[in-house]
Design a protein around this nucleic acid. Sequence first.
DNA 1: ACAAAAGTGTTCCTTCTACACCCATGA
DNA 2: TCATGGGTGTAGAAGGAACACTTTTGT
Lengths: 235, 235
Amino acid sequence: MSDREHSYLRLAVDLAILTVRDDALQALVITRGNEPFRGRPALPGGFLRGDEDIEPAAVRELREETAIDAAGLHLEQLRAYGDPDRDPRGRVVSVAFLAIWPDMPLPTAGSDARTAGWQPVDKVRGTLAFDHDRILDDAVEHARSQLEYTTLATTFCGPAFTIGDLRHVYEVVWGHRLDPRNFNRKVTGTPGFVEPTGERRVPEVGRPAALYVAGPATTLNPPILRGLADGEEIR
Amino acid sequence: MSDREHSYLRLAVDLAILTVRDDALQALVITRGNEPFRGRPALPGGFLRGDEDIEPAAVRELREETAIDAAGLHLEQLRAYGDPDRDPRGRVVSVAFLAIWPDMPLPTAGSDARTAGWQPVDKVRGTLAFDHDRILDDAVEHARSQLEYTTLATTFCGPAFTIGDLRHVYEVVWGHRLDPRNFNRKVTGTPGFVEPTGERRVPEVGRPAALYVAGPATTLNPPILRGLADGEEIR
DNA sequence: ACAAAAGTGTTCCTTCTACACCCATGA
DNA sequence: TCATGGGTGTAGAAGGAACACTTTTGT
């Protein structure tokens, strides 16, 4: 094949960063400060630089636009998006990443981002620039599936959490209620999933709950499968 | 961000095409006809063209190098590989695809491929050009996992197959034996997985087996989980 | 005392696993 | 009649779902 038959293009990285906040699955969304789509909401992201691997580029863009240091954050590559018309600036292929983040106060916006903040996934669906609606949908579905087979749900929680906190994550991400009693047994009975700290947390109302930290396991065996507890939907 | 901070690059597609053949998991491997790595084995692939989406490019490259028409073939995107040094020609990011193919005679090589043929995965591991060893490993692991949760195994078989054929696929891909009796019940008892044709196949030795075709289901519920039948390894 | 959330015990049911056993064919 | 692979029956183990019940706190 001759060099004329193929063309150069730019590679972008986009990040779908999810958290559970206010009883809802939320995504980190910026408001674009530059054309195209200036003023429109979008996922954080930007172009790959010359000598950068893809994942470091994602970490850098996240830091530039949201001042979040993702060095210790688990980024997972979703897939590449290559529709020739996906970016009005020309040929841009994007590699999307998924990250999970506990609910924390957000640092301020920077570089290309006019604002940066959490938005409920259900609210921003249909409003994002480029093909970011599609990317976000894929990320949410991936996260839902990940909760079944991996211990990823613990990264939605802070450093120490109760089984109720963890169950709340599953309920919000999956969109339906789980039986608290069976969930408790299942989680505590899965080796390496959570480990008790010995501490307790006293809630505003109700019995204090034991606190746990994430265990060493990364995959769940057996998995925690979705499947409606009853017909009931959450929220 | 200014345009000077990011750079243009070329995007490649690479295909990991797997089949079960001669009691082994095999991959479609070409011998490179051009530099770099001329004469070395590699996965089929090539550069994206100007106005092409990624998956059509993969289909086109497959046709050009192996004369296989992948129009009706299920291609699944694995992930993107972006190590800045992965290609000596310069900055090339590659998007890898996975495909499953029944054991069939292979058409001849073309364009950049001097030869094209099936090679056992265990034999080519460590010999491939670029970072294709890594891509192939990721593809194999993905395929193994897919057999658990999807009906993909039927695409390793021809249009009509016996339960024994299907079991053989699982055994070869997973690398260990399964109990033929439980496997039979499991497969025939999963709605939409396989459908009997009413025909039978008479083997060289043993009782004739009923023939089946792939059913409409794409996901397996419940899944068929890996887990050694006994300590025994296949081959 | 009461509300609320945490956590345990128990029962029923489905699915997995191992293996005994029978079936259909060619040599 | 024997070897070989196809297929059914079935008992025990393991895990999931439903739910009664107890525990521990604040008000």
